[in-house]
């Protein structure tokens, strides 16, 4: 192949990716950034300014919502890790042959349905007239219907469920590569189950833990359906604020500013997390 044709084919191969990045990621974000620095003066004129950003920090409702979303997302991520680790351990280290594939499929299959359907599934279980409530009355544990939706625990349950697969997959991949003799050596040199887990297994799994945590944290922070449907009116999720600004209040400038803030602040949190856990982004994702 001559050099020109070689270069042409390289660009043709790259073109879909570059177009996707440019048109769907870079351009909209630049547009958002541009819009967010507009301050409207009247119905048809605006000036440059940072008023929207000031609003975020001066109106406590905005930044409180953001902090609440961030804290709940961190908590969700931690819970997902705690739930996913034993699952991943079982799939990677204990299951053999067919059962390994089946268990993996069992984690994957719920994700063939959309987030909406999965969330409604939870609502069928948890609502006042739902399965669990009816069953509790039937067994006699309670006299009246129990409402289990529309609180933070319900939101967290839904979010953990949504994030589970994205935590299990990187954990299984890293745990698969852990040599059994390392674990045995850990015991042989005098360690108990806790020290082996803490000194050998977790350091080994750290890249998988970190990449799983980043994905789940970002997914949770940016999720919209689950907090709205399972948390109800008062769920106060930051994405709802963005939605309200854009759609309900038709205040695109404020919505854009909140969107940019969500991206910047969550990226900063991920960076901080990486620094604190001593991991580098390249090692985790590569």
């Amino acid at each position: 192949m001559n050099p020109v044709a070689h270069r042409l084919s390289l660009w043709l191969l790259l073109a879909p990716f570059l177009l996707w990045m440019l048109l769907l990621v870079i351009v909209p974000h630049l547009q958002m950034l541009w819009v967010s620095f507009h301050v409207r003066e009247s119905w048809d004129s605006s000036v440059w300014g940072v008023a929207q950003y000031q609003t975020f920090f001066s109106e406590s409702y905005y930044w409180r919502t953001f902090v609440r979303t961030g804290v709940m997302s961190l908590f969700t991520t931690l819970l997902t890790l705690i739930v996913a680790f034993p699952v991943a351990w079982y799939i990677a280290r204990l299951a053999r042959g067919r059962s390994k594939g089946l268990l993996f499929a069992a984690c994957l299959i719920p994700f063939w349905a959309s987030e909406l359907v999965r969330t409604y599934g939870w609502m069928i279980l948890l609502r006042e007239s739902g399965l669990i409530s009816t069953w509790l009355q039937f067994v006699g544990l309670t006299d009246a219907p129990v409402e289990m939706l529309y609180n933070d625990i319900a939101v967290m349950t839904g979010l953990v469920y949504n994030g589970l697969l994205f935590m299990v997959v990187p954990l299984v991949t890293t745990l698969d590569g852990l040599d059994e003799s390392l674990v045995e050596a850990g015991y042989d040199l005098g360690g108990n189950s806790w020290t082996v887990l803490q000194q050998i297994v977790i350091p080994w799994t750290m890249p998988g833990i970190t990449s799983g945590c980043i994905v789940v944290f970002m997914l949770t922070l940016g999720s919209y359906l689950t907090p709205v449907l399972m948390g109800g009116k008062d769920s106060a999720w930051f994405t709802e604020q963005i939605f309200t600004q854009f759609i309900t209040r038709f205040n695109w400038e404020q919505g854009a500013a909140l969107g940019v803030l969500l991206l910047v602040l969550s990226s900063a949190l991920v960076w901080l997390g990486l620094r604190l856990s001593g991991q580098s982004f390249r090692r985790v994702m590569g």
Partner: peptide
């Protein structure tokens, strides 16, 4: 009793 494993099993993270 301590054991030297076939592939040594040195802890790679240490």
């Amino acid at each position: 009793v301590n054991m030297v494993f076939q592939h040594l099993a040195l802890f790679p993270t240490m």
